[in-house]
Design a protein around this nucleic acid. Structure first.
Lengths: 206, 206, 206, 206
DNA sequence: TATGAATGAGTTTTCATTCAT
DNA sequence: AATGAATGAAAACTCATTCAT
């Protein structure tokens, strides 16, 4: 049997159930982006979805499970996106460009969902007060560090710098685009991508 | 006088009151950094401070006022810090370095307070669901944009790039240091500062 | 749907919900008449009804809405009563008698509810401190003034006097019966009605 | 030693104390008439008086004592008023007129204080929920009943009617003037007095 | 599969009162 | 005589969760 955590077995969902779940997730995203994680309640989500509160706890046994649902849903979108935009550049410089461009494109296409997930990931905590989605750093920074490693040690096209720090900086610049987009719909993320590519090219190249 | 809720002018605080206020603000910072903004309640702060809930509302008529207190307190620390570390480099490259280094030093010295303020600023909303501390962007990006402007148009030592985008990227990299520090006390922010300086030197120089 | 607080349109109530609402209203009346409006709290009402506080806010989103419920309920009883006791005397003197007698009968039959509504109407205020049910004067005095007008100007059976003042006096005498009844269950309201009829006959007749 | 109730000895007040007390009572009257008894708190009174809450509890050991103060103060004003307007008509008809006219004049001259006292008297309750100023009925109705008695049984100028009922009606009509005045400053209480005199003349005369 | 109903814990806030100075 | 400080109880309201239907 597949359980995920603490004995909480995810219900095997039927087709209709999946549709409902998707709808609830959409409404959750709307509510979170509109009023923020701290003000989001199951009642307000139910209201937005025009269903009773019970429906939500029927489909997601927990508030926790619902929030996880929103996050996982974005992961799945990301996986799908990656598959579609798959390309394997043969050099570190192009890898880095591809990484930046595809990340910003994904954010652009999923801005609301991304914003909601950021709210959840930075706010949702367990009873001990620990961030429920903490400890994903390695998974986030690893791909970047690999590119840097390749450029520095295999190809020799990158200068010497701290791979982790560079990854932190780049990641923060990418995430900043999401913030800017959330605040200002006119933010020109394509132009931002171009500048970011140029900048990191200069910053990393030997 | 007993209250200050008429037109919201901040009450003239006595000496003892200031001490208590400070203490409450300290505890608020502790609680927020420990369990996050969304889980922070006046009750928990009172508990941490070992006083009754009433004490808090006696000194801060509102939760809103308390949160504002935490934010304003950091602003004051920042102003004081700036005065102390004041230096006026005569060229853009050194200005940029000074900006980065002093900012990271301030974050290093006030890591908890900074973390708490970020929690507040990104979460505290009014009844309409709008972020209460939104719309400070201009004030944040202006000093950086001025440095870039000087380097590009007066000195000619900086290449051509979008001043706003560059400011957004740099600011996000600086703030990322706070996040990293919050998660991991071992994070070597001095080294990070060095890398950041090098990187932005390369990224901006003609 | 889960709430009704958007624009304050009263929610469509189901059968069971109506029953609960009625029960809560009954208890509210009891509590108000027992300890007065100023001491009445949702907690005490819940206690009297032997339900949890939450039940009350589930059925009435607001204390305001609950109080309005109590008032509206009496209006409805009054409308029903009027329909049942409908009679259209063809002369002013009999109209006046009918008005007095039926009003006192209604008060007699609904003494507690009437007492509670008086408490609410004279005490329930909005955030600005204004009586929430103020400004109904015209609706209250109009029917009486019409009778006086008819007797004075159409029939000529009434002497000349200020219609408004006479209406104020008579209305106050009628409401006084409710007060007396609230204080003293032995108060003989039927006899009071007779005296009132006699008195106003003498006071108004040419 | 003179105690008033439940062992609560009224402090012997010095001259300055009396002045402060008066001032606090004035402010209490203002607050009550502005926002109603149920919303009146010591804090709000202190605010209005521009003193700290402590001052109030220093001069009045209790909220109860403060409210009593407001009521007693009006009684004293009334006693003083009566002394000044003393007249002893020798017949029931003139006594009744004098009663009505002087009562309405007193209300006119002390409208705010009267309104506040009505709020207190109809709302202030003890811990058992009983009106603290209840049971004054006899004192209120007695003088009127005496006049009626005199007119009916000594002089024979009044017809036969229930003395108590007539007193209730008249008293309610007089108090109604206070209500009207509270709601509408333009209310012509002198004219009202005239009508009331005429009316009760007709209603009572043989 | 959905919902209405109910619960009880927890939130912010207000308040009368007490007390040291 | 006055005040600032503190307290703790009680208020209204919100909410995640449970459950019978």
């Amino acid at each position: 049997m597949d359980t995920n955590k603490q004995g909480k077995k995810p219900k095997e969902k039927t087709f209709t159930e999946k549709a409902r779940s998707k709808q609830i997730i959409e409404c959750t995203i709307d509510v979170i982006t509109e009023i923020g994680y701290a003000n989001t309640s199951i009642g307000k989500i139910a209201q937005k979805a025009n269903v009773s509160k019970g429906v939500i706890t029927y489909h997601f046994s927990d508030k926790e499970e619902l929030m996880t649902g929103v996050v996982v849903d974005l992961y799945q979108k990301a996986a799908f996106f990656m598959e579609k935009h798959m390309q394997n550049p043969d050099n570190a410089i192009d890898m880095l460009r591809a990484y930046i461009v595809s990340n910003l494109l994904f954010i652009k296409e999923n801005r609301k969902h991304v914003a909601a997930v950021i709210e959840i990931v930075t706010n949702d905590r367990n009873e001990q007060g620990e961030l429920r989605f903490a400890g994903q750093e390695e998974a986030i920074y690893a791909p970047l560090e690999e590119i840097f490693q390749y450029g520095q040690e295999v190809e020799g096209t990158f200068r010497s710098f701290s791979k982790r720090f560079m990854a932190v900086m780049l990641r923060s610049a990418i995430d900043a685009a999401g913030d800017q987009l959330a605040k200002n719909d006119q933010f020109d993320i394509d132009l931002y991508a171009e500048e970011l590519v140029t900048m990191y090219d200069r910053a990393t190249r030997k």
